[in-house]
Nucleic acid binder design. Structure first.
Lengths: 267, 267
DNA sequence: AATGGCGGTAAACACCGTTTACACCCGTAC
DNA sequence: GTACGGGTGTAAACGGTGTTTACCGCCATT
């Protein structure tokens, strides 16, 4: 595949009314090539010079688009999150809006499936101290709902299941007092996010226990997926999907997601 | 701290009966310097030339001790695991042998505490696709008990709690059939490992459900710790230790680790 | 027709892992 | 006592990296 050395880049200054749109395209191609290198040749192969080479360009030209290599990698991470979110959203279109537990399962399965199929992207985005460089932001939904697209999908289906099912969650006085403030802030952020998506979320169904349960749910989902991707189970697991499904069923039972459709089994 | 450029290396050929022991010391210093760079300046600062510089040596000299940079990093990972294991073992000496649930908690707390205090070591060892380079080995306890020292501690306290408590575990026919073979292999490996430590483990207390529960336990512990280290909780958690303790209590209750000392509450 | 900015290049700098050839010192053997 | 050989280190070099600097050409504007 030495044909990569042949310049492939699209014409830049042709037929551009203002010369702006082509810039956007080049920018997109940069990140696309970067991701391709990440996927096919590993994190170590993602290099300004390699990207430029693949585009038939010199490395310093990339500085017209990004301040530094870390900056570029940051944007690539955002692209990855966006693609993951798009894939999950596509999976969701196949399910009826009413099957909210099914939508939760779909997102969980989609997350695992994506992580297993894209281990290097997963490692880059989900297994670094908050990003490729150190600071990516304080939190996901901290202040005003600046959620990453993947988190937004997750929280959206969580909101949907909240309004349609009676989940099994601890009472507010059962969640550790030291977490109340953080959970309240999370609740507020979720309210803003969900209101922006047009979901009328009654306040009383989103208790502290619900927020706490979402946290515990994420811990187990993430642990399961990360350990599979990293191959860090305490022993060889030859059918990881079966293990994942077992964990999903267990969590569904524990959190009250199992059972028939509808607002709850007994009401 | 430009004093690092001053050669600090210990005399090499002095007072060495065979010249072998000094080699060992130099080897140890190499990894020690590498770890210091990792801790204080991050993974990207761990560099053959930086290590050599810190030792008042040139980079090619390191090739007398390691085949490559990746080889060195591999050994550093092993050192890190060893230190973690030593720290956990030290914590355990403060607890009576009889308090087996307490020993499990100590290991869990020690693991989290270590991870939080050494985020970069944790990331290097526990958040890479099976090591710094790709292949570190098929599994932890797969064939003949070649467990890493950290895993060995974990499995040892697990074995101790097994023989002293009746845990709450699923019946064998409740664990997914697709996992039976792997769990059996894990069980066998554990038997070998524990027999090597002189623990007489009756076969019937180590059911498939026990092995499955250990797997689920590790998933939740790892997820909790990794998310805290990476700052990937769905919101800002200002008291992560409280969150961790809450998870630990919850797991203790679920797995039958809570309650008084002794073999079980009702028997 | 002159101007200014945008996108690109070439050259250079300091750093990286790695290889090669060479130098030194030690313990040993003749 | 001298020659040898192996273990330990160096200097120099190669190709690779991120990044900066100076320059160059084209396009849209004035």
């Amino acid at each position: 595949m030495t044909e990569a050395t042949r310049p492939v880049r699209a014409e830049r200054h042709e037929r551009a009314g203002r010369g702006e749109r082509t810039r956007e395209e080049t920018d997109q191609q940069i990140r696309s090539v970067a991701r391709d290198l990440l996927v096919t040749r590993g994190r170590a192969a993602v290099t300004l010079r390699a990207i430029a080479r693949e585009m038939g360009i010199t490395a310093p030209a990339l500085y017209r688009y990004y301040d530094s290599f870390d900056d570029l990698l940051q944007r690539v991470c955002e692209d990855i999150c966006l693609d993951l979110a798009a894939e999950l959203a596509a999976d969701l279109t196949a399910l009826p809006e009413t099957d909210t537990p099914g939508r939760v399962f779909a997102v969980c399965r989609g997350f695992r499936s994506w992580a297993v199929r894209h281990p290097r992207e997963f490692t880059l985005v989900f297994a670094s101290p908050a990003g490729p460089s150190e600071p990516i932001g304080p939190d996901c939904v901290g202040a005003g709902g600046n959620v990453d697209p993947f988190g937004r999908i997750f929280l959206t289906v969580a909101g949907q299941v909240l309004v349609t099912r009676d989940l099994v969650v601890p009472a507010d006085d059962e969640v550790p007092a030291a977490l109340h403030a953080d959970l309240q802030a999370f609740r507020s952020g979720m309210f803003d996010t969900l209101r922006a998506t047009g979901l009328p979320l009654p306040e009383q169904v989103f208790s502290l226990g619900v927020a706490y349960s979402m946290l515990r749910f994420w811990v187990r989902l993430y642990g399961q997926v990360a350990l599979e991707v990293f191959g860090r189970f305490p022993f060889q697991v030859s059918d990881p999907e079966a293990l994942f499904e077992a964990m999903l069923s267990e969590m569904a039972a524990e959190f009250g997601l199992a059972g028939e459709f509808g607002p709850a089994t007994d009401e």
